Amino acid sequence: MSGVLSSVDARTKLVGQNRLELLLFHLGGSQFFAINVFKVQEVMRLPRLTRIPDCHPVVRGVTHLRGQTVPVVDLRQAIQMGPLNMDAVDATIIVTEYNKTVQAFLVGGVDRIVNMNWNEILPPPSGAGRQHYLTAISRMDGRIVEIIDVEKVLAEISPYNTQLSDDVYDRGVLKQVQGKKILIVDDSMVAIEQMRQVLVPMGLTIVEARNGLDAYQLLMHWKEQGMDINDELLMIITDAEMPEMDGYMLTTEIRRDPVLKDTIVVLHTSLSGNFNKAMVEKVGCDGFLSKFAPFEMAAEVQRHIRTKLENRLG
């Protein structure tokens, strides 16, 4: 599928406009699924795979692409729909980069790329429970499109170690901000839980929002209540891709607000580092964290806390 990837320059045009591009695909049936094009490196017909003994059951094997060995994950099986028929005519792999790793997802076939606004992307229904593999849903051509929670899939294949030793935490600094708020914004429950395991030992009050719009409305509510946000809120750690309002748009709105404009905002995302360095500069984030690196998150949060304390003293 030629032309799947846009250049960084083309991608940056979507940032600040609350827009995204989705790659639509199916898993051997009529239902459409999607992932963000930003994560996609390449789309190709299913190549010959090499089996790996004792690998995770949803990993069908590995293939060699451009000098590296790439695991191929049966996405249908990974989201509990049963294995995909690898002999299907349109069997395809989508090569992606998440959390600084490259992997391919085996799918039944790729449909097309669509350009959408994040306000057309909605959270999954609240009655769907907590065990599903979706971060969002949308409607297109009269059909529901389900956006896969790839972070949940990858975490189940290769669980992250989020346990940090106590010497990672600067207790002298953290003692000065005990009980202060830190707002974490992410549409993935896996990502929220990973962040909590790093941040809870700091003694901070963790406030959660599932997307940028929820976070923005919460900030407006705090303003209306007369809360001293600059004092009570240490920082915001936000994902980039979220239903209704993405992290870039959230940051843009914060910078436009005279009360909120100095709030520390750190972008926390599985999108590629080079792309996000350009985005951090464009929208005015104070930092960037790749998912999921617990040591780096602890260090970044404490670095900003130290800076905030020094500014108060100055």
Score class of each variant (00 low, 15 high):
residue 55 C to R: 13
residue 55 C to S: 15
residue 56 H to K: 15
residue 58 V to N: 12
residue 59 V to A: 07
residue 60 R to Y: 09
residue 60 R to E: 13
residue 62 V to I: 15
residue 62 V to C: 10
residue 63 T to I: 01
residue 63 T to M: 14
residue 64 H to D: 09
residue 66 R to H: 11
residue 67 G to S: 11
residue 68 Q to I: 10
residue 68 Q to Y: 00
residue 68 Q to L: 11
residue 68 Q to K: 14
residue 69 T to M: 14
residue 70 V to Q: 01
residue 71 P to Y: 08
residue 72 V to C: 01
residue 72 V to A: 02
residue 73 V to M: 02
residue 73 V to N: 04
residue 73 V to G: 04
residue 73 V to Y: 00
residue 74 D to K: 08
residue 75 L to H: 04
residue 75 L to F: 04
residue 76 R to S: 13
residue 76 R to G: 04
residue 77 Q to K: 12
residue 78 A to E: 10
residue 80 Q to T: 09
residue 80 Q to F: 04
residue 80 Q to Y: 07
residue 81 M to Y: 06
residue 82 G to I: 12
residue 83 P to W: 10
residue 83 P to G: 07
residue 83 P to I: 07
residue 84 L to Y: 05
residue 85 N to C: 10
residue 86 M to K: 06
residue 86 M to V: 11
residue 86 M to S: 07
residue 86 M to I: 10
residue 86 M to N: 02
residue 87 D to W: 03
residue 87 D to G: 14
residue 88 A to L: 13
residue 88 A to W: 06
residue 89 V to M: 11
residue 90 D to Q: 15
residue 91 A to N: 13
residue 91 A to T: 12
residue 92 T to G: 06
residue 92 T to I: 06
residue 93 I to T: 03
residue 93 I to W: 07
residue 94 I to K: 08
residue 94 I to C: 05
residue 95 V to K: 06
residue 95 V to N: 01
residue 95 V to Y: 04
residue 95 V to G: 00
residue 96 T to S: 14
residue 96 T to G: 03
residue 97 E to W: 07
residue 98 Y to L: 14
residue 98 Y to M: 12
residue 98 Y to H: 14
residue 99 N to W: 08
residue 99 N to E: 15
residue 100 K to F: 03
residue 100 K to N: 15
residue 100 K to L: 13
residue 100 K to R: 15
residue 101 T to A: 10
residue 102 V to N: 04
residue 103 Q to H: 11
residue 104 A to N: 01
residue 105 F to Y: 13
residue 105 F to N: 04
residue 106 L to T: 01
residue 106 L to M: 08
residue 107 V to M: 03
residue 108 G to R: 07
residue 108 G to L: 03
residue 109 G to Q: 08
residue 109 G to A: 03
